[in-house]
Write a protein that binds this DNA or RNA. Structure first.
Length: 363
DNA sequence: TACGATT
């Protein structure tokens, strides 16, 4: 299956040259304002297929695009989804905004109409006081216009200490220009050092060295230590905390397990998904008739890389038949999800969660 | 109600 990528939203997805918007087949300015969403803070390793799978679980997608670096192909951590039905766009915002996926809390909101005036409106800020948080930074900049996104970079080791640098994206480039004029070289109240405010580089303008450094930093964080809290069971409250952005207790896990499928001890009666379907297939039993794919994303996402979810429905009634499947990339994360979610009470039902078995290989 | 696949 090849994913169709329709470039209707290319203009917004790129600051680079040649990114001209393409009108869709209606031969007129389509009003996408009620169907077109932007998704921010996606996990870096999420693929186009996973992106489509997650948002396709809400409703029929007209087009979607995970935005990637033009040179490296690396995900830039955001994408666009255009639904056929405005109600599905609304539903996606309501059910997927704030969803915790690995270490990220994704943001789902309506995309702004594509236009030249919103391009190149991203600012890079440095020499910020280390005590300044995101909200305070936004307050400082908000006098110059509407802030779309903001971020303060944190120390890689502590995961929370500010590095004194950040990004601010305004709605309009003019606003960003005004913020540079007003704030570059200025000392925030109580600060000892003036801040630097300038336009951010486009990702594709990174030097080869910077790209290598980036790739090294993002692949080197593969911890080899033993798992902690292996027997911990997560209950409703901890899942809710995760959903609302509290750091997942599992976020220390490596994104890619060094353990290969072949090296894992074979579990009695458990047959693993074949090599063509990468990942670990999990059987989830006792879902309600109303269960949908998003509940499976919500439940399993906090434990690690989920590549696919499926709720099995009766073809005629379209109600869930009481079970579903979840595919996770890494054994450790799948095992943790099973240990934590088996016996988990969802509403008035107690879930039974295990690796999927295969009748073929039994006895 | 227990191990899919209407892509």
């Amino acid at each position: 299956m090849v994913t169709q990528i329709i470039s209707t939203m290319e203009t917004q997805a790129s600051n680079g040259p040649g990114s001209v918007g393409i009108l869709n087949g209606t031969n007129g300015a389509a009003d996408d304002s009620k169907t077109n969403l932007i998704v921010n803070y996606l996990p870096q390793n999420m693929t186009q297929e996973e992106f489509k799978s997650l948002f396709g679980s809400i409703g029929e997608i007209e087009s979607c695009k995970l935005v990637r670096d033009k040179i490296t192909g690396q995900s830039l951590g955001y994408g666009f989804v255009n639904y056929v039905d405005p109600n599905d766009a609304d539903k996606a915002i309501n059910t997927l905004n704030g969803l915790k996926l690995q270490t990220k809390t994704i943001k789902v909101s309506y995309a702004r109409p594509s236009s030249a005036s919103i391009r190149d409106a991203n600012l890079y800020v440095s020499s910020l006081p280390k005590t300044m948080n995101q909200k305070e930074m936004e307050q400082l900049f908000s006098q110059y216009g509407r802030i779309i996104t903001s971020r303060i970079l944190v120390d890689q080791v502590t995961g929370s200490v500010s590095r004194g640098v950040g990004f601010i994206r305004f709605d309009k480039r003019i606003e960003a220009e005004e913020a540079i004029k007003g704030l570059n070289g200025q000392k925030p109240l109580g600060a000892s050092e003036p801040i630097t405010v300038k336009f951010a580089n486009n990702p594709s303008q990174k030097t080869g060295q910077a790209l290598l450094t980036h790739l090294y930093q993002t692949t080197a964080r593969r911890y080899t230590g033993p798992l902690h809290h292996q027997t911990q069971r997560f209950r409703l409250d901890s899942l809710i905390n995760m959903a609302y952005g509290v750091k997942s207790p599992l976020s220390f896990l490596p994104r890619f397990s060094p353990i290969t499928i072949d090296s894992v001890t074979n579990l009695a009666g458990v047959s693993l998904t074949g090599p063509t379907t990468a990942g670990w297939c999990i059987f989830v039993y006792n879902l309600s008739p109303e269960a949908d794919e998003s509940v499976l994303w919500q439940l399993f996402g906090p434990f690690g890389a989920v590549t696919n979810v499926k709720v099995i429905r009766d073809f005629t009634t379209n109600k869930c038949k009481g079970f579903g499947f979840v595919t996770m990339t890494n054994y450790d994360e799948a095992a943790m999800a099973i240990a934590s979610l088996n016996g988990y009470r969802l509403g008035d039902r107690v879930l039974q969660v295990s690796f999927k078995t295969s009748k073929q290989h039994k006895a």
